[in-house]
Structures are given as C-alpha cells and as structure tokens.
Amino acid sequence: MKYIVAIIQPDKVDEVKRALEEANVQLMTVSNVLGRGRQKGITEVYRGAKEMQDMLKKVKIEIAVNEDFVEPAITALMKGARTGEIGDGKIFVLDLHEVVRIRTGERDGNAIG
C-alpha cells in the first residue's frame, strides 16, 4: 500500500479529480495549503508595510492506494495537474503500513477502497 501526497495548483483540482475518477481512484482528502518551491511567492504590501509572506496558495491531495493503483494514480495526477509551467507542484509517494476502516474495523487492503 502507498500513501500518495500531491501538491498542486489550486485551480487544477477539478481536472485532477476527473482524471483520478477515470483511473478508478475515487477516494481522496483535499486541503488548502501554502507553499513555496524554487519560484518563491509574491510579496504582499499592507499600507506600505511589506509582508514577506513569499508563499503561494496550493492544494494538497492525499490518496491511499493498493499497489495496483499506484502508477494509474500518479499518471492521473500528472495528467490533471500539469501545465508545463513553473509551480505545477510535486507528487510524493510514501509506504503505508496500516489502514483501518473506523465503521467496521476492517484492515488494510479491504479497508483502503
């Protein structure tokens, strides 16, 4: 099992969701985050005072999948989120040790989908 974390452009969420659906990956957790890569952010100014926030809004998508779905999920994330411009984001793939479905107590492969 893998835990996939993707940081993407906020306005790519719908396209990513659609691409994942086409790859039969339905379950995901989405959150708003701030981040910076090599391109840095934009400095904000409030009444003349510069706020060195240097961060841009991004969206974090987290998906837990069985091994069979790792590559399809990555392909779908790339397809939905890629513009070819700087700031498209990153995908991190982590090993996942255990999954428990709270309602039934099912574990791992049975609980993941």
Partner: peptide, 22 residues
Amino acid sequence: GVREETIGLDLTQHNEAAYTVL
C-alpha cells in the same frame, strides 16, 4: 498573463490577499 490569472488578481495586481490561510 496566464501566471497572473492562475495565481489571482488580488496578489498579482494589488499585492494583497483577502484571506490568509495561516
């Protein structure tokens, strides 16, 4: 430009944000 439009006009045209995330 595409980048300005994607990031939003608040930050790119006015250097301000209406809502903070943190």
